[in-house]
Amino acid sequence: MYNDEARRWERDIFFVSQWSQTLCFTDLTRLLIQLSKMLSFLFSRLFSTLIVILGVVTLVFLLIHMVPGDPVQAMLGESATFADQEALRVSLGLDQPLFIQWQSYMLGLLQGDLGNSLYSKSPIIEMIWERFPATLELALAGLLVALVLALPLGSIAALRKDSVYDNGSMVFALLGVSIPNFWLGPMLIYLFSLTFGWLPVSGNEGFSSLILPAITLGTALAAILARMIRATLLEVLNEDYIRTARAKGLRESAIIIHHALRNASLPIITILGLQLGTLLGGAVITEIVFAWPGIGQLTIESIERRDYPVVQACILLISLSYVLVNTLTDLVYAWLDPRVRYSA
């Protein structure tokens, strides 16, 4: 009993002394240099994000000027009076020089003002906040489906390379990237809603209505991820530290979870961040298939109504969330892998 207590004290004292040793003067300077390198990485990453955001906003701003002919006439239709047209032109600022228009668009954006919808007359920002949670819910559910499918499929394929499982997983991966979500969706509806009657056809009422859209959205990403996980794991499994872990006599599950998957997670996170864009783009089509009341549906509805300011706002919101997620992925990557932040 006493012995145990003493040993614990001894260990603690050893750790404290070790820690105090690392804090000597030269190490402190090294720490500061590392910190400044980390900060400079952070700032350079945030700076380029800022430029990309500025460019995205400008491109989206220019969209309305790409309407063939007169955008005001296109939005109001042929029958509108001249007075109505001029009123809309002035209220959208389209009578101003391009640079002034850009300036006021930027200023409005910074103040959270995206203007009003031409169709419902309500503020666009409110319409978007109303729809955004549904899209977020769908995207997260799609991501979850992708991970749940891809992790076991990719891992088993790598662990049992060239086996039936491996071939099966890779056939799934090939089919998954080749099957368009606007066809997979209707097929799932036909099978599970119309034929078996297990799940609702469309809409957003509770968990059961989320299942089919999430599968439709997540399948392509699952396929890409499964391939990626297989390739990365195969590479990692050849490393020396895996052989060491095996030699130590660790259980196979411990080797895979703690040694292999952990080291394979870095490239997988990068792919996940990059592919999230495909997920968000795919969400637009999936929302149309399942009448899911999100941003994608709002975008297509607004295109049909020629409500271009709302279209601009939707595109902007989805792109900006994508840019932010990508930046976040980079930062997480740097946080997980010190080599990235120190080499910057």
């Binding site: 990309v52 783009g281 975008t299 279209v311 601009q312 595109i315 989805i318 792109s319 994508y322």
Partner: peptide, 11 residues
């Protein structure tokens, strides 16, 4: 920075 076919949809 524009995800997937979103820019194509807008254009």
């Amino acid at each position: 920075a524009f995800p997937g076919i979103l820019l194509a949809i807008a254009l």
